[in-house]
Protein backbone atom coordinates (compact mmCIF):
# COMPACT_ATOMS: atom_id res chain seq x y z
CA UNK A 1 0.00 0.00 0.00
CA UNK A 2 1.43 3.36 -0.93
CA UNK A 3 3.22 5.20 1.80
CA UNK A 4 1.04 7.87 3.38
CA UNK A 5 2.33 11.26 2.10
CA UNK A 6 1.78 14.62 3.70
CA UNK A 7 -1.63 15.56 2.33
CA UNK A 8 -0.59 19.09 1.74
CA UNK A 9 2.38 18.49 -0.57
CA UNK A 10 0.09 18.08 -3.57
CA UNK A 11 -0.50 21.27 -5.62
CA UNK A 12 -3.82 22.85 -4.66
CA UNK A 13 -5.43 25.99 -6.09
CA UNK A 14 -5.25 27.87 -2.83
CA UNK A 15 -3.56 27.49 0.45
CA UNK A 16 -5.79 24.93 2.10
CA UNK A 17 -4.14 25.47 5.44
CA UNK A 18 -5.82 28.83 5.98
CA UNK A 19 -9.16 27.33 4.93
CA UNK A 20 -8.76 24.49 7.43
CA UNK A 21 -8.02 26.94 10.29
CA UNK A 22 -11.07 29.02 9.40
CA UNK A 23 -13.43 26.06 9.18
CA UNK A 24 -12.01 24.42 12.32
CA UNK A 25 -12.67 27.62 14.27
CA UNK A 26 -16.21 27.74 12.92
CA UNK A 27 -16.77 24.12 14.02
CA UNK A 28 -15.39 24.71 17.53
CA UNK A 29 -17.99 27.49 17.94
CA UNK A 30 -20.71 24.92 17.32
CA UNK A 31 -19.08 22.26 19.49
CA UNK A 32 -19.12 24.64 22.48
CA UNK A 33 -22.88 24.45 22.45
CA UNK A 34 -23.45 20.90 21.14
CA UNK A 35 -21.70 17.60 20.64
CA UNK A 36 -22.42 17.04 16.97
CA UNK A 37 -23.35 19.04 13.89
CA UNK A 38 -24.74 17.96 10.52
CA UNK A 39 -22.93 18.92 7.25
CA UNK A 40 -26.10 20.47 5.82
CA UNK A 41 -26.36 22.71 8.91
CA UNK A 42 -22.68 23.65 8.43
CA UNK A 43 -22.92 24.61 4.73
CA UNK A 44 -26.51 25.81 4.86
CA UNK A 45 -27.40 27.36 1.48
CA UNK A 46 -23.78 28.12 0.52
CA UNK A 47 -22.72 28.11 -3.12
CA UNK A 48 -21.40 24.94 -4.93
CA UNK A 49 -17.71 26.09 -4.69
CA UNK A 50 -18.05 26.75 -0.94
CA UNK A 51 -19.81 23.38 -0.43
CA UNK A 52 -16.81 21.65 -2.13
CA UNK A 53 -14.35 23.62 0.07
CA UNK A 54 -16.21 22.69 3.29
CA UNK A 55 -16.43 19.01 2.24
CA UNK A 56 -12.72 18.79 1.38
CA UNK A 57 -11.86 20.55 4.70
CA UNK A 58 -13.86 18.15 6.93
CA UNK A 59 -12.17 15.25 5.09
CA UNK A 60 -8.75 16.73 6.00
CA UNK A 61 -9.76 17.55 9.64
CA UNK A 62 -11.00 13.96 10.05
CA UNK A 63 -7.70 12.73 8.52
CA UNK A 64 -5.91 14.76 11.28
CA UNK A 65 -8.05 13.07 13.98
CA UNK A 66 -9.58 16.46 15.00
CA UNK A 67 -13.11 15.54 14.09
CA UNK A 68 -14.94 12.33 13.39
CA UNK A 69 -17.40 11.85 10.45
CA UNK A 70 -20.34 9.45 10.47
CA UNK A 71 -22.75 8.65 7.56
CA UNK A 72 -24.39 5.17 7.86
CA UNK A 73 -25.86 5.18 4.35
CA UNK A 74 -23.64 7.15 1.95
CA UNK A 75 -25.49 9.91 0.00
CA UNK A 76 -28.81 8.92 1.57
CA UNK A 77 -28.20 10.49 4.97
CA UNK A 78 -26.61 13.69 6.19
CA UNK A 79 -23.01 13.58 7.45
CA UNK A 80 -22.74 13.82 11.28
CA UNK A 81 -19.61 15.69 12.46
CA UNK A 82 -18.29 15.21 16.01
CA UNK A 83 -15.29 16.64 17.83
CA UNK A 84 -12.68 14.06 18.95
CA UNK A 85 -11.91 15.04 22.59
Amino acid sequence: VREVEDPLKVPHEENIEETLIRIEAELLKYFRIKDAILFSELVGMKERKEKVTYFLSILHLAYRKIIELRQERIFEEDIEIRLIR
Binding site: F39, R48, K49, K51, V52, F55, L56, I58, L59, H60, A62, Y63, K65, E68, L69, Q71, I74, F75, I79, I84
Partner: peptide
Protein backbone atom coordinates in the same frame (compact mmCIF):
# COMPACT_ATOMS: atom_id res chain seq x y z
CA UNK B 1 -14.97 18.46 -7.69
CA UNK B 2 -17.01 21.54 -8.57
CA UNK B 3 -18.09 20.06 -11.92
CA UNK B 4 -19.06 16.67 -10.32
CA UNK B 5 -22.69 15.52 -9.95
CA UNK B 6 -21.72 13.73 -6.71
CA UNK B 7 -18.60 13.54 -4.55
CA UNK B 8 -17.38 10.52 -2.61
CA UNK B 9 -15.26 11.73 0.32
CA UNK B 10 -12.58 9.30 1.58
CA UNK B 11 -10.62 9.96 4.77
CA UNK B 12 -9.14 7.95 7.67
CA UNK B 13 -11.14 7.06 10.75
CA UNK B 14 -9.79 6.83 14.32
CA UNK B 15 -8.34 3.31 13.67
CA UNK B 16 -6.53 4.56 10.54
CA UNK B 17 -8.78 2.59 8.21
CA UNK B 18 -10.53 4.35 5.31
CA UNK B 19 -13.99 5.77 5.94
CA UNK B 20 -16.35 7.09 3.28
CA UNK B 21 -18.95 9.86 3.15
CA UNK B 22 -20.77 11.29 0.16
CA UNK B 23 -22.55 14.44 -0.94
CA UNK B 24 -24.72 15.12 -3.97
CA UNK B 25 -23.90 18.33 -5.83
Amino acid sequence: LEKADSIVGVTLSKDNSSTVTGIKM
